[in-house]
């Protein structure tokens, strides 16, 4: 039973890591129906920014909580500006192009950002400082769940609730939903669609940066390539839960994380990806739009 609980928490940690990235995918898809493949790279840039900022701040000898808050702010703002710029450069000019064009543009952007960081920084793995300390109250449970796992779990929950609130109960959220339902109609009733889309990218990218910081602090190392694998898994999770749906992304991430953890624990880690993707195929066969996704009819 202990073993089951340990695996359960492993799965939860993995799931919430995926969820932090998947939320950005699903938001962008929900609003403009675009799979933003550069999202994984924004996450990676968030982690790099966090590394640089926290290193500089620790040279000035600031206390740890101040470092964490400033680093979080800096990397969220920096990544958000990347997300905003990427949208303006790579997606906005293609707003009325066939659906495949922005997809290709997204893949191109992803490659560009990867190689840009590779050239500007390094191809080596870099150590990431342990920004999340080991809490004393967690010590009795350290063998089951670590402090960084707990922080990631809590953050994911908070972020999901905040996002749901933003979309359901604020003016911006209302504009987002209107844009998602019918972009032309939204324009006709006076919504600045370009602004709404920009805000979506800014929020999604800031979330990716928070994810980048927390996950890098949990794993302890980063390089230019981390966005790719994490991005693919998070994208899978978003599709599993129903891409475009925010609770769906979180649910899908947890299901994916738990499946991988239990497959590793009870079968073999050689097959964790086999189990994860078989599950995806199965769910898509029976629910083609994902667990919580709405079946949409093609708009004319």
């Amino acid at each position: 039973m202990d073993y089951f609980i340990e695996l359960f928490f492993s799965g939860l940690t993995r799931g919430s890591i995926y969820a932090l990235i998947a939320l950005g995918y699903t938001m962008v898809y929900g609003i403009i129906g675009l799979i933003n493949f550069a999202h994984g790279e924004i996450y990676m840039i968030g982690a790099f920014t966090a590394l640089i900022v926290s290193t500089v701040l620790s040279i000035f000898g600031l206390p740890l909580p101040a470092i964490i808050i400033l680093t979080l702010l800096a990397s969220a703002i920096w990544s958000a500006s990347y997300g905003y710029t990427v949208e303006k450069i790579a997606y906005q000019p293609l707003r009325n192009a066939p659906r495949l064009s922005p997809l290709i543009s997204a893949i191109g952007m992803s490659m560009f950002l990867q190689n840009y960081v590779l050239l500007a920084q390094t191809s080596d793995f870099l150590p990431f400082p342990a920004l999340i300390p080991d809490f004393a109250f967690m010590e009795p449970y350290a063998s089951t769940i670590g402090s960084s796992d707990l922080v990631i779990l809590v953050t994911t929950a908070v972020v999901m609730l905040l996002l749901t609130w933003l979309i359901k109960f604020t003016r911006t959220g209302k504009a987002m939903r209107a844009t998602a339902q019918d972009r032309k109609m939204a324009m006709l009733v006076g919504i600045n669609v370009d602004n709404v889309i920009s805000i979506t990218f800014i929020i999604g990218s800031a979330l990716a940066a928070i994810g980048g910081l927390l996950i890098a602090a949990h794993i302890g190392q980063i390089n230019f390539y981390i966005g790719f694998v994490a991005g693919i898994k998070a994208f899978t999770a978003a599709v599993l839960g129903g891409i475009g749906s925010i609770p769906g992304a979180v649910l899908g991430s947890f299901i994916l994380g738990l499946t991988e953890a239990f497959a590793t624990g009870y079968v073999s880690s050689d097959y964790e990806d086999v189990f994860a993707f078989s599950l995806l195929v199965l769910i898509l066969i029976f629910r083609p739009s994902g667990l919580l996704g709405k079946a949409t009819i093609e708009k004319v």
Binding site: S10, G11, Y18, D149, A261, T264
Partner: peptide, 20 residues
């Protein structure tokens, strides 16, 4: 005797398995 996936975000499940 197990293989892990390079680049995965978290190895805690396989670590639990080693412990067990």
């Amino acid at each position: 005797f197990e293989g892990v996936t390079p680049g995965a975000v978290d190895y805690s499940a396989v670590v639990q398995k080693i412990k067990r």
